[in-house]
Simulated scan of single mutants.
Amino acid sequence: MLLGDCLFDRQRGLLTNQVSGEQWHLPRAELQVLSLLIDNQNKVVAKQILGAGDEEYSALSDSSVTRAVFMLRSFLGPLHEQMIETVKGKGYRLHIDKYVSESNQHTRFRELKANYNAMITYLFGQHHRVLKAWVGVLVLVLFVLVSVQWILAAQAVVHHSAPYSTHSITLDSGQKITFISYAKSKTNNTSLVTLSSRLARGFAQCKTSSWQQVYLSLSHDKQVFNITMRGEKLGQSLVRNLKLTDYRQQKSFVSDRWLTEVSLCE
């Protein structure tokens, strides 16, 4: 089953990102939560149902269900993480129909280009040069407009401005990890600096890590902390996107418990 850019093989419990090639054999909690959301797609499923136990496994706690949803969203990536919607006070809902068109944009572009080439070939073969020129221009304009729309959407999560700050740490193994922070303003970024330092201290506990660059940013209202980690393992490039939300007045985002659960080290 296709979920955004990822292909889900329920029988093997395998989630594969078809863009990066990254694969994830889902642990029991993530596999159970995702399977139940798919079985009830476009419907709200309560936490108690998502975490229900059976004769083989004990029930999952609410925090285990919440963490499973968090990990699944992280693997789906920023363009598709909202497929799993949080319905406050009720549970979670998996949107499938809403994202089918987005997942098939590349296919539509290829079909559009193929149709354009076929039309031009046909018109050229019939020697309708004037009609070919007008139709070619119209189809080409349509193709460019759709392509630009897709490119803008795909680049919405990419930072184009210069980083606000950059600093690095060196692990005991000699590996260097660089932390790159982005901010819309050069002032009032105390929270971002604090979070960057806290995350660096978490990485400093590792002997080795697959991650080499860590990109950080806070939303304009300071309620969402975005983390993108890039690295390499066994010769393959790795990318992991995390989005932490905290609506409290005194925000934490990165706690000691979170640092342990998110597995920064190898």
Rank of each mutant, 00 (worst) to 15 (best):
H159P: 04
H220V: 12
W211P: 00
I177F: 02
L216S: 04
S173V: 08
D172W: 00
D246L: 01
V144C: 15
R201K: 15
A133L: 13
A133H: 05
V158C: 08
S165E: 12
G231E: 08
K243A: 14
L140W: 09
V224I: 15
T178S: 05
V193Y: 07
Q175G: 08
A162Q: 14
S161I: 13
G174M: 01
G235S: 03
G235R: 03
H160W: 14
Y247L: 08
R198Y: 01
Q249L: 14
A153G: 14
F143N: 10
P163R: 06
S197V: 08
D246K: 01
Q249W: 09
W150G: 11
F179I: 03
S210I: 11
Y247D: 10
I151A: 15
L218K: 00
L192H: 03
V141K: 03
A162I: 05
F143M: 13
T208Y: 03
E232W: 06
I169Q: 01
A133F: 09
A133D: 04
L138A: 15
F203W: 01
L216N: 10
M229V: 04
G174F: 01
V137R: 01
T208W: 00
T245S: 08
V224H: 06
S237Y: 05
P163Q: 10
Q223K: 15
V146F: 14
A154M: 14
V144Y: 07
A153Y: 10
S209F: 07
G136Y: 00
L195D: 01
K184I: 05
V144G: 04
T194E: 15
H160Y: 13
V141M: 12
L216Y: 02
V157W: 14
Q205N: 05
T228H: 10
V224P: 01
S209Y: 08
Q249H: 12
M229P: 02
G174R: 00
A133T: 07
H167S: 10
Y164A: 06
V139I: 10
L131Y: 00
L192C: 07
S181K: 10
Y164K: 06
N226F: 15
T208P: 02
P163V: 09
V139A: 14
A133M: 08
T170C: 08
S181T: 13
I151P: 02
V141C: 11
F143H: 14
F203V: 02
L199P: 00
T170F: 05
K243S: 15
T245R: 12
L171R: 09
L171M: 06
L242K: 02
R230S: 11
H160N: 10
G174T: 02
A162N: 06
N241L: 02
I169W: 01
A153K: 13
N241K: 05
L216A: 05
S196E: 14
N241I: 01
V135I: 05
S185C: 11
T166Q: 11
V214E: 08
T245G: 02
L242G: 04
L152H: 09
V193D: 06
T170W: 03
S237I: 11
K207L: 09
V239K: 09
V158N: 15
